[in-house]
């Protein structure tokens, strides 16, 4: 028994890990009796795109510090907004989907928070299309769950607008242009806290 890199799966990802005698990583991890390691997306995307001929790996945003604001008042008195990168959109009359902004990069947009959920859908394609679907809006844009929490008195109210940020390629633009625009809109609506969701 030893720590080793399992390379017995040619063409697949070498998985570094503890491999017990008499069993491969696959069988060991597949038993479901342990909580397995989370997916290392940074490593996997770097290795994948290198293997596809992209020479410069994507530099994921990294900071040594993290700002923190404590809650100013109880949740039951707080006004909440969703801020999401899930590319949420509203279907037009007759159910047609607006694809005009499909290729937008950067920019902030807002939707009324009381938009009927039947009209909402996500234009996002960057999700695990092999394992799941985006059919249930609430799993990346939890608007109905938040509405129910308001009805129960757990949170005070929902802001009139929720906000989307298109997935940008430029971290600088996201941090210096889009993020301040989101802040401006939240302050305009007297929002107390934000629920942040990717797809």
């Amino acid at each position: 028994m030893a720590f080793e890199v399992a390379i017995d799966r040619p063409g697949r990802w070498p998985v570094a890990g503890f491999r017990p005698l008499g069993g491969s990583w696959l069988t060991w991890a597949g038993k479901g009796d342990i909580m397995s390691e989370h997916v290392r997306y940074i490593d996997r995307t770097r290795d994948y795109y290198l293997s596809q001929g992209y020479e410069k790996p994507y530099q994921w945003a990294h900071h040594s510090d993290a700002p923190f604001t404590p809650l100013a008042k109880p949740l039951s008195q707080s006004r909440v907004a969703i801020v999401s990168t899930c590319d949420i959109a509203i279907s037009g009359p007759g159910g047609q989907r607006d694809r005009s902004h499909e290729f937008s990069v950067g920019n902030v947009y807002s939707l009324p928070s009381d938009t009927p959920i039947e009209l909402l859908y996500s234009r996002q394609e960057h999700y695990d299309q092999h394992a799941t679907t985006l059919d249930d809006v609430n799993v990346y844009y939890p608007v109905e769950r938040l509405q129910e929490r308001v009805e129960q008195g757990r949170i005070g109210s929902l802001a009139p607008r929720f906000h989307g940020v298109y997935t940008g390629y430029s971290q600088r633009k996201t941090a210096e242009v889009d993020a301040p625009e989101v802040l401006r809109r939240l302050l305009e609506d007297d929002v107390d806290l934000a629920v942040m969701t990717p797809v």
Binding site: V83, D178, P198
Partner: peptide
């Protein structure tokens, strides 16, 4: 998403990020 969250926190709005 995380970058926007950081900006909000730095400017007085508490956030919680959900993610996979």
């Amino acid at each position: 998403m995380s970058l926007v969250s950081r900006h909000l926190e730095a400017n007085g709005i508490p956030t919680v990020v959900f993610g996979t």
